[in-house]
């Protein structure tokens, strides 16, 4: 099977940055995800060789932590905060509306690959509840009414 050369080059670069330290596995995976927006299969295979960590262990770590995705994500990641403050101030309504507007379920990516919709445990912005984060920007005190307009702005 042919390997993606750009992935291989980038992964080797990242591994080098961490001195091929096995304990840096999570940090390395974070950097890979930042570079490709997800963890490509080839990246994990390269990592297995470069770090000398079994692929099964890499897979275990990659699937244990919520931050990692094994499938490509959209251009913007939408994180709906499901913290307690957001929950009591209507986070579920926001998630329902986003699912309807984007025509995807939580965890999926839109057909045009612009948005990936996910739930996040708590963004620590409880004073601004309910909040969602799109591509790193926090939208505070949100009502479901504002959602269509916000999505349009990101699409432009």
């Amino acid at each position: 099977m042919k390997r993606d050369k750009t992935v291989e080059k980038k992964v080797k670069e990242i591994v080098k940055k961490y001195g091929a330290e096995k304990s840096s596995l999570i940090a390395i995976l974070q950097d890979i995800q930042e570079a490709f927006n997800y963890l490509p299969k080839d990246a994990l295979i390269v990592l297995n060789e470069a770090l000398d960590v079994p692929l099964s262990r890499i897979y275990e770590v990659a699937t244990f932590y919520n931050a990692f995705s094994l499938t490509p994500r959209g251009k913007y990641l939408i994180e709906v905060c499901a913290g307690t403050a957001c929950h009591v101030t209507g986070a579920i309504t926001l998630m329902d509306r986003l699912e309807r507007e984007l025509e995807v379920k939580c965890g999926e990516t839109t057909k045009d690959a612009v948005f990936t919709l996910e739930q996040v445990r708590c963004l620590g912005c409880c004073s601004l509840a309910p909040v969602i984060r799109i591509g790193g920007n926090i939208h505070a005190y949100l009502t479901q009414d504002e959602i269509p307009k916000i999505l349009r702005n990101y699409r432009q």
Binding site: A82, G83, T84, A85, C86, H87, R121, C122, G124, C125, C126, S127
Partner: peptide
């Protein structure tokens, strides 16, 4: 790793 939802003093 302030994981409790609803707490953000450590942040």
């Amino acid at each position: 790793d302030e994981g409790d939802p609803g707490a953000y003093m450590d942040r």
